[in-house]
């Protein structure tokens, strides 16, 4: 049985491209990523049925081993339908997100950030109290200045338009 190498290579490239797109923040890129990823996996699944053969319906007399395995084709058909439905849903969701907030970036969990911020705050308060005991308040102003500097640095983050920045360096 000879496998079709083209199918495997094409599937691999699609999966790789899809994975890269999936790392992005904007929902539309993620939609494109899932489409590529889904199709890539479908091709790989199809390659499991071996080399292409004759269609059994057209050549009823053809011998058994000339026909390809029909089961992976049935799997792929099912998977295509599912991918289509989910793509439609994701696109709708991206549109709704754009409608609501003017962008379709996947947002961070606010509540989660709040819990983390509270811990940071407690830590900082503890450090401040210790600093106050040691240096009678001189540390506080310094700390506040450092915090302001950090906040400012966070605000002017460069490279928002660069697609690679959103793919590779987008995570805050």
């Amino acid at each position: 049985m000879t496998e079709s190498l083209d199918l495997v290579i094409a599937g691999g490239v699609l999966v790789a491209a899809g994975t890269a797109l999936l790392m992005a923040r904007p929902l539309t890129r993620i939609v494109l990523g899932t489409v590529l990823l889904g199709n890539g996996v479908n091709l790989l699944l199809l390659s499991a049925s071996g080399a292409a053969g004759a269609a059994p319906l057209l050549y009823p007399a053809s011998r058994h081993r000339h026909m390809p395995d029909p089961l992976p084709q049935a799997f792929v058909l099912t998977a295509i339908v599912i991918t289509l439905a989910l793509t439609a849903f994701l696109v709708t969701m991206a549109y709704r997100a754009w409608q609501l907030s003017g962008g379709d970036d996947v947002q961070d969990d606010v509540e989660d950030l709040r819990v983390a911020r509270r811990a940071e705050l407690l830590e900082e308060r503890g450090r401040l109290a210790a600093g106050q005991r040691r240096r009678a308040g001189r540390g506080r102003a310094e700390l506040r200045a450092a915090r302001a500097r950090r906040a400012r640095a966070e605000e002017e983050r460069p490279g928002e338009d660069d697609p690679w920045a959103t793919i590779l360096g987008g995570d805050r």
């Binding site: 999936l22 929902l27 993620i30 899932t34 990823l37 889904g38 996996v41 479908n42 790989l44 699944l45 499991a48 089961l71 992976p72 799997f75 998977a79 599912i82 989910l86 849903f89 994701l90 969701m93 709704r96 997100a97 609501l100 907030s101 996947v106 947002q107 969990d109």
Partner: peptide, 29 residues
């Protein structure tokens, strides 16, 4: 707003796991 935000995370993670499942099925088959 909140549900779209939460739903996006959920849908993407679930989609990825579905694709992985399909791949695993392909490997097994």
């Amino acid at each position: 707003v909140a549900r779209i935000r939460a739903g996006a995370t959920y849908a993407i993670v679930s989609l990825l796991s579905s694709v992985l499942f399909l791949t695993a099925t392909a490997v097994v088959y």
